[in-house]
């Protein structure tokens, strides 16, 4: 078996990992839709969906069956090509970001030296999906939602990048594995606390999760940019949102909470536990916080978060220079 080279093994192993992570993330996104409803129920002193299957476990199956068989309607006034493209972009761009997440020392799809920049690039592409979806629907609510979404995402991505520069500076690399390795002794949450806070805010905003869900704002915009979507196309937007949530949680864990590091338990368990914690936080935010006015969201981003990240970056630089000197 001379053709079976170690490179081939590595390739198959890589593909296998990629497949497992892909399926894992997508399934996790789907499961989260139900889990979130159960948690919202818990925090609102009710049960949530508990009727399908034992303890409501088959709710997900029911939901999936429903969404698969729903009429997949394309409005006659929509711009057809873009209308089809938007949900694909929304789903794919966030899913691709998982390439760079190192799950355990042995697991992870790609080990790129531009790691973090890759994430920023795909987050930028994700804006297009919202913009195209809103515009191509030919609906004024959708268009307004899309406008809000792009303005909001662009604004928050500015300091999202800046907030991580402290981490990059301290780790001295964009490579995620190196960043995790740099946290072996001290998680970056401590030196980069303000970076963490602003990244958390930006992460919530970029995924359009409450309280930064102005683009969808049910009450004002009747679902915003995806108002005309139904069936599985809506499903892709919907699952895409949860995939985004998982991604941001995983990034926070990787960048600020030492990734898989932790005592006693195996690395994967630590990674999973930490990520779950942040997923929980996302849900708690939705359960607890009201949606601010749109102009407040924008002014908060530009007037509070951006200065805060800049100061943080300056301070980090100054401290590093001082310590290094």
């Amino acid at each position: 078996m001379s053709w079976w080279t170690p490179q081939l093994t590595a390739i198959f192993w890589g593909m296998f990992q990629a497949l497992v992570i892909l399926l894992g993330v997508v399934l996790l996104g789907a499961v989260l839709t139900v889990v979130e409803r159960r948690f919202l129920g818990l925090w609102q002193d009710r049960y949530g969906p508990n009727r399908v299957g034992p303890f409501g476990t088959l709710q997900l199956v029911a939901d999936m069956l429903k969404i698969f068989f729903k009429e997949d309607w394309i409005p006659p006034f929509a711009s057809r090509g873009l209308f089809l493209l938007a949900p694909v972009l929304a789903f794919a761009s966030l899913l691709l970001s998982f390439l760079i997440i190192p799950i355990t020392p042995g697991w992870g799809v790609a080990d790129m030296h531009i790691g973090l920049l890759f994430f920023f690039a795909l987050a930028g592409i994700n804006v297009y999906s919202v913009l195209l979806g809103g515009w191509s629907s030919g609906n004024k609510y959708a268009l307004l939602g899309a406008l809000r979404a792009s303005a909001q995402t662009l604004s928050y991505e500015v300091f999202m990048g800046l907030s991580l520069m402290g981490v990059v500076a301290m780790a001295g690399s964009f490579n995620m594995r190196e960043i995790v390795a740099a946290q072996e002794n001290l998680w970056f949450i401590i030196p980069q606390f303000f970076g963490f806070v602003t990244f958390l805010v930006a992460g919530v905003a970029v995924t359009h999760r409450a309280p930064f869900d102005q683009p969808e704002a049910e009450q004002e915009l009747a679902d915003g940019y995806h108002i005309e979507y139904s069936g599985m196309k809506f499903g892709m937007f919907f699952i895409g949102e949860y995939v985004g949530m998982v991604l941001v949680s995983a990034l926070i864990v990787t960048l600020f909470f030492g990734g898989w590091h932790g005592p006693l338990l195996p690395p994967f368990v630590w990674f999973a536990l930490k990520t779950s914690g942040f997923l929980l936080l996302f849900m708690l935010l939705r359960a607890a916080l009201p949606r601010p006015r749109y102009d407040r969201v924008m002014s908060f981003g530009w007037k509070v978060c951006l200065p805060l990240t800049l100061i943080n970056l300056l301070a980090t630089g100054a401290v590093m220079l001082w310590v290094g000197a």
Binding site: G41, L42, W43, Q44, D45, R46, Y47, L284, L285, A287, A288, L289, V304
Partner: peptide
């Protein structure tokens, strides 16, 4: 900002504490 953040955190806490309440349903 400081009191507002405090208020947000307290809200989160209060809502989280509902995990341990009896369900009304």
């Amino acid at each position: 900002l400081v009191p507002a953040t405090g208020s947000l955190l307290r809200t989160l806490g209060t809502v989280f504490m509902h995990s341990f309440r009896k369900r009304e349903t």
